[in-house]
Each structure stands twice: as structure tokens, then as C-alpha cells.
């Protein structure tokens, strides 16, 4: 199987599981399909030789964020078919709006494409930990440190928000 075939199969599977995220009625099933989507996107990263990002995508997205979503779903006891019914008009409007967005995106990007045969050096090593780490700690060291401040802020905010308030007497 050539790499081209592999890329096409992976892309089709990614689109299919992303569709299932939107289409499945059960919220827990949506989360699980989203995890599958993230794994497939990681496979795409490996195909593009972005190995560091593939691993980080699995650890951060599939491992941390999705588990958080799953925890909240279980905590709120939404793991039954409690999905409110959307009216058919809103569904139709949403699908039409999404289709128009896709058409405009593809039409705009089709004309903007750079067709220059830019020589991509074979087997570039940009996605490896060594090169990304060097870039991260020299050129982008200030945003890297700022992201830690962002994490502290979001952690404090989450703790503050989720703290149980004084019991309201019914």
C-alpha cells in the first residue's frame, strides 16, 4: 500500500468519525468518537513526520482533555439519552450554513493555492523533539513561559468556579 492510499484511507476515516461525533445522540458516544478522531489525526501527523506533535496530541487531547469531558459527563449524570430535541428547521438551517461555509472555504482556498513547485527537502526533521525543542527554547521561549502563567490562571479560575457555594435553602 502506497503512502498516498494510506493518506486517503486515514482522511476518510477521520471525516467519518468526526461526522459520528455530531450525529450520535448519546453524549458519551460522542466523546468516544472524538477520541477516535484524535487518534486518527495523530496518525495523520505521523504520516507528515510530525512525531512530537503526534505524541503530544494523544497525551494532551485523548488522554487529558477527553477524560475531563468524560468525567464531567459522568458527574452530571448525562449518560442517558437526555439530549434535548432540536427542531427540524434549526437542523436544516445549521446544515445549510455549514455547507455554505465549506463551499466558501474551498472556493477561497482553491484560488489562493500556491502551486509553486517549492523543493521540499526530503525527510525533513522538523517534527522531531530535538528540533522543536530547540525552537521552543530559543525563538519562542517567551510565549512558552507565558503559557505557564495562562495555565496557573486557568487552574485558579477553574477551582474558583467549580467550588461549591453556600447551600441555598430551598
Amino acid at each position: 500500500m502506497t503512502l498516498e492510499m494510506l493518506a486517503i484511507v486515514l482522511g476518510g476515516l477521520t471525516i467519518g468519525s468526526a461526522l459520528m461525533v455530531v450525529l450520535s445522540k448519546h453524549p458519551v458516544r460522542s466523546v468516544l468518537y472524538l477520541v477516535v478522531t484524535f487518534f486518527l489525526i495523530s496518525a495523520n501527523y505521523i504520516l507528515m513526520n510530525a512525531q512530537f506533535l503526534a505524541i503530544v496530541n494523544i497525551i494532551v487531547y485523548a488522554g487529558a482533555i477527553m477524560v475531563l469531558f468524560l468525567f464531567v459527563l459522568m458527574l452530571l449524570n448525562l449518560n442517558k439519552d437526555s439530549e434535548p430535541i432540536t427542531s427540524i428547521g434549526i437542523k436544516l438551517a445549521g446544515i445549510i450554513a455549514g455547507g455554505v461555509l465549506l463551499t466558501v472555504l474551498l472556493a477561497a482556498l482553491k484560488d489562493g493555492l500556491v502551486i509553486t513547485q517549492q523543493a521540499v527537502e526530503s525527510a525533513n526533521n522538523n517534527g522531531l523533539v530535538e528540533n522543536l525543542g530547540e525552537l521552543l527554547f530559543t525563538k519562542y521561549v517567551l510565549p512558552f513561559e507565558m503559557s505557564s502563567v495562562l495555565f496557573i490562571a486557568s487552574m485558579v479560575g477553574a477551582v474558583m468556579l467549580a467550588k461549591r457555594e453556600k447551600q441555598i435553602i430551598d
Binding site: I15, A18, L19, V22, G94, I95, A97, G98, G99
Partner: peptide, 16 residues
């Protein structure tokens, strides 16, 4: 683009 459009449709259609 297709993935982005699917996400946008999901935001518009789902209620949860």
C-alpha cells in the same frame, strides 16, 4: 476544511 465545517455544523445543530 471538511473537519472545520463538521465542527461548525455541530455547534449550530447540537443543544447539549
Amino acid at each position: 476544511s471538511v473537519l472545520f465545517a463538521i465542527g461548525a455544523v455541530g455547534v449550530l445543530v447540537r443543544r447539549n
